[in-house]
């Protein structure tokens, strides 16, 4: 699980072009959207593509994303349970 969390932090920084943040600075419980990391609606859509491309998880309802992408903890838990690759 820790390896998955680390992997997620790295891909977040790289794929969402978070130039002024390092993976180490993202806490497992940090809010990714809103006041936390400050991600926006395009980032949320980008994360949906990442789930599909890297983990083989298809989200059909964008509203589902809100709970899943709350933090690294929620994301990793969802991926661990639903991944197909």
């Amino acid at each position: 699980m820790d390896a998955l969390k680390q992997e997620l932090k790295e891909s977040l920084v790289e794929q969402l072009n978070l130039e002024d943040i390092t993976p180490a600075e993202i806490g497992d419980d940090d809010m990714l959207f809103g006041d936390g990391l400050g991600l926006d609606s395009i980032d949320a859509l980008e994360l949906i593509v990442m789930l599909d491309k890297t983990y083989g998880i298809k989200l059909t309802d964008p509203k589902q994303g809100r709970a899943i992408f709350e933090s690294i903890n929620t994301m990793s838990a969802y991926i661990a349970e639903h991944r197909t690759k």
Partner: peptide, 9 residues
């Protein structure tokens, strides 16, 4: 086939 919304915009 993975079009990216962050590119498309």
């Amino acid at each position: 086939y993975y079009p990216s919304p962050a590119v498309f915009v």
